[in-house]
Design a protein around this nucleic acid. Structure first.
Lengths: 347, 347
DNA sequence: TCGCTTGAATGAAACGTTTCATTTCAATCG
DNA sequence: CGATTGAAATGAAACGTTTCATTCAAGCGA
């Protein structure tokens, strides 16, 4: 039972209780905890013992208030339901742990308002920094966040390097890679299933897709674009239904991510449309489940885990670099993984 | 530029700066923020204006230190790579948001040590409460955590209700459901692919499986148990390889979760073993990707999102209930979703 | 006009740490 | 033996809030 100096309201044990019980000053307890070398071995062990006995746990908020620095990094992603971001978070976490920092992961659900809400929360928490996949192309949320002086790194988004560091994959190149694979296989009516057009990923991949179509000499009308409201499996199913209504129906489809592609695949299966015979299909991200899909999915791979780790490292370098930090943009190349969903058509 | 009272070290704007600039006292600024009704409309708007002008953001750590209560709930799951837990977190988040609380999600990677580390972190942060899928059956981590007086709720784990609240699905029943489905279809050599045996989920489902085998009059040896070190796709592939080495080879397999089943499915595909013709396969959790798998997966469904929401609600009820709170155990029934991976065998 | 009430604002204490200048005390040196 | 050093411990200030008892001023009824 804590007695002297214990918090009457919560009944919690404070550093004061430990000091009193161990017969030393508060400062000594703090030192025993944070700079053990400044304290004699004797007192150190006595303090340790009392801490165990009383079940003392230091208050992180008091620590942070006084010392001014937080041990947390925030990771704000578009969608926690997308395994791509989960892989990314693993990388970030690993890198952060090496610097003894924790990662708190939140997801904006692709909603700019939710993003803004989370950013204010991060500011209130005075997090060490933020890794963010922005939910709006305007970037106004981040612009507003900037004044707080908390460093942030863009993830999965190419960005002007005056602004901040960034880690990304060249989405235009990725889109081109995917679509070229289709048109070079001889498809003349193709479709791109895009997520919300306010996401840069979606529009960039479209640019690449258009480029590939043009490069083959096909007219722009050869490419149909269907936009969905979300980047998930359910939206993929919806898009599939819409695709089935198109006349003439495209013979090949490129989806802005694997979740859409998996949903679309289900819709095709239900409608009796065979993949790849009747419809070739390419996804994006190469998540773990693309390979295990009903028809293993051709997909554009991004080094998700590495991206997360790199982002965290850039962030930490920035927090340590101080004034003379120079923003840096790391861009990884995308890679096409060909699987059964785009096997050569039988003529 | 903040002038009077601004923190010289960090250059941040504090409530003192706002007060000074607005020509009111600190307490008034605080009231304008937290109890707007106690402040005249006039001062209120003036304070608001100054806050915007100066870009003031209240310090969460100071707030928490003084007021003593945190606005955070922690969610500690076994594996963030498992879509089941992602769905669960969505439910928890939704419920927490209704009480204006944030959820911080961490994953123990099924490692009791990591679990213990995270728990201490939560204690230091003085989180409002913890939702936890325990990583060790002994429960010693949680027992140690108990002394901090922070309430916690077990998720996906049946537990003695003297201890804490819990939300779960009856895993023994689930295991029985899955295995009965197989043996009643006439399979006489079956296997159970278990995750680590220190996870209660894995052992409970085994108990159910054994019960189903016994109920059909088959000898216990009819059931082969393979244990894996992790509950993920890669481990499923490994288990698949081991399964292929068994003589005689089982004709039906029940996996402790869908990730294992998906991995095993890949291994079977690579080896030319047909599912369901040569091998029937049942998973657990019914994650979104089970339906989209190469062979759509029969699986035992758990109401993940609802479980998360219920857990959060139980937790909040406990924090509000105070002394007279009575622990509660909510147990949902599992549900078998039959798909192609266990279609009746052609005789 | 005087006391009373009420609404608004104030000032200071407290929350639990870290940090730093200061004190204490024993050991070492010339 | 007095002066000097160094290690160890101390005490108090500060961090940015919230909260609460207090003050202040204006409005009101008698």
């Amino acid at each position: 039972m804590p007695t002297a100096g214990s918090n009457r309201r919560t009944g919690e044990v404070s550093i004061k209780d430990v000091a009193h019980r161990a017969g030393v000053s508060i400062g000594t307890v703090s030192n025993a905890l944070n700079r053990p070398d400044r304290v004699s071995a004797d007192t150190r062990s006595r303090v340790r013992a009392v801490i165990d006995e009383l079940g003392y746990v230091r208050s992180e908020s008091a620590r942070q208030l006084r010392s001014g620095d937080s041990r947390m990094v925030a990771l704000l992603v578009l969608d926690i339901g997308n395994p791509f971001f989960v892989a990314l978070s693993r990388g970030a976490e690993r890198a952060a742990r090496e610097h003894e920092l924790g990662v708190m992961m939140c997801h904006s659900a692709q909603d700019p308002d939710a993003e803004s809400l989370y950013l204010s929360m991060f500011a209130e928490q005075r997090v060490r920094g933020v890794l963010v996949t922005p939910a709006d192309t305007t970037g106004s949320n981040l612009l507003a966040f900037r004044r707080h002086g908390i460093p942030y790194v863009f993830v999965d988004r190419v960005v002007d390097s005056d602004d901040a560091c960034s880690v990304s994959v060249d989405d235009v190149a990725g889109g081109e890679l995917a679509m070229r694979h289709l048109v070079e296989a001889g498809h003349e009516r193709v479709a791109y299933i895009s997520g919300p057009s306010h996401l840069a990923q979606c529009t960039d991949r479209l640019v690449g897709a258009r480029r590939a179509v043009a490069a083959t000499g096909l007219p722009p009308e050869a490419l149909t674009v269907l936009e969905t409201t979300r980047l998930d499996v359910a939206s993929g199913r919806d898009a599939g239904a819409r695709l089935l209504g198109l006349r003439p129906r495209p013979t090949a489809v490129f989806c802005a991510n694997d979740l859409l592609a998996l949903g679309l695949l289900q819709a095709m299966f239900d409608a009796g449309v065979r993949v790849p015979e009747d419809l070739a299909l390419v996804g994006y991200d190469d998540i773990e489940f693309a390979e295990a899909a009903a028809v293993p999915l051709t997909s554009v791979r991004q080094p998700a885990e590495r991206m997360g780790a790199t982002a965290a490292e850039l962030l930490l370098r920035e927090t340590e670099g101080g004034r003379e930090h120079e923003h840096e943009s790391v861009i990884y190349p995308p890679e096409l993984i060909v699987r059964r969903s785009t096997l050569p058509r039988r003529e």
